[in-house]
């Protein structure tokens, strides 16, 4: 049982923002980084399946620069066995990321490939799907439950408005994992230390194909009408809320 988990180190923008000189991206000085929330659920799900199978491995794969290994190490500390990072120093669109990952998947012949439904920074919800398209693998997107069978799996696909679509999918397959599917484990200090010694194989990307999208310009969205901001301390804010509620509910 071998499960590949595609993970992303996401960028977090704080209260302040400046753009690069060409206005096509945020100045990296204003960004912090973390493991994408969806990917910790995907990693946990992979660990549980391999543990239930009794043998196998969980391999974390990612596209990014050396700093992205911080997030991969988080997954290794949770229990993943090893990592493969495809070197990339520039921002890629999700389809280019999928092209870089597809080569890794081909070389590993996994039973399942997991990816988070989406990344918290870009929210394209596309990398896992694009990967399945490139590899011509079966795909189920936005999954909240997985039961493995023989050469297939029965999964719950979470639809809008609280409806679930139960799907039977042939394996090997690509599955994109939704938050809430499990409770990701915390890594112990010992595990974090041990993860430092786990292998992360670094590979160079092949042909990533044409850019699927190009940023012309990035900007802070105009506030528009926006919210009327209530000033003052908590007591004054609470008083205004009470007045507003009375007025609007009348």
């Amino acid at each position: 049982m071998k499960v590949l988990v595609a993970v992303k180190q996401v960028a977090i923008l704080g209260d302040e923002v400046e753009f690069t000189e060409d206005d096509r991206d945020v100045d990296p000085d204003y960004l912090d980084y973390a493991l994408n929330e969806w990917d910790s659920y995907a990693t946990e799900e992979a660990l549980r399946l391999v543990e239930a199978a009794g043998s196998g491995e969980v391999v974390v794969i990612s596209v990014g620069d050396e700093d992205a290994e911080d997030s991969m190490r988080r997954c290794l500390a949770m229990g993943a066995d090893r990592g493969i990072r495809v070197e990339s120093v520039r921002t890629l669109d999700p389809i280019q990321v999928a092209r870089a990952l597809a080569e890794v998947v081909r070389s590993e012949s996994p039973d399942l490939v997991f990816a988070g439904v989406q990344s918290s920074d870009s929210v394209q919800a596309a990398t896992g799907g694009a990967l399945a398209g490139l590899l011509d693998m079966p795909l189920v997107a936005v999954v909240t439950k997985i039961e493995l069978g023989d050469g297939k799996a029965t999964v719950n696909r979470e639809l809008e408005g609280g409806l679930v679509d139960v799907v039977e999918v042939d394996t090997p397959a690509v599955i994109t994992i939704q938050t809430g599917i499990n409770e990701p484990r915390y890594a112990t200090l010992r595990a974090i230390k041990q993860a430092e010694d786990k292998e992360i194989d670094v590979r160079q990307p092949g042909d990533l194909g044409p850019q699927a999208q190009r940023v012309r310009r990035m900007f802070v969205p105009p506030k528009g009408e926006g919210a009327e901001m209530l000033d003052g301390g908590a007591a004054e804010v609470a008083q205004r809320i009470k007045e507003l509620v009375e007025e609007k509910m009348a």
Partner: peptide, 24 residues
């Protein structure tokens, strides 16, 4: 649509056919 159903086929198709792509 940027919807659950479309997430199951649209990025796959865009990648396979080499289409320009953006979501949301």
């Amino acid at each position: 649509g940027f919807s659950i159903d479309s997430m199951g086929f649209a990025p796959a198709l865009a990648a396979k056919l080499g289409l320009g792509f953006a979501s949301d």
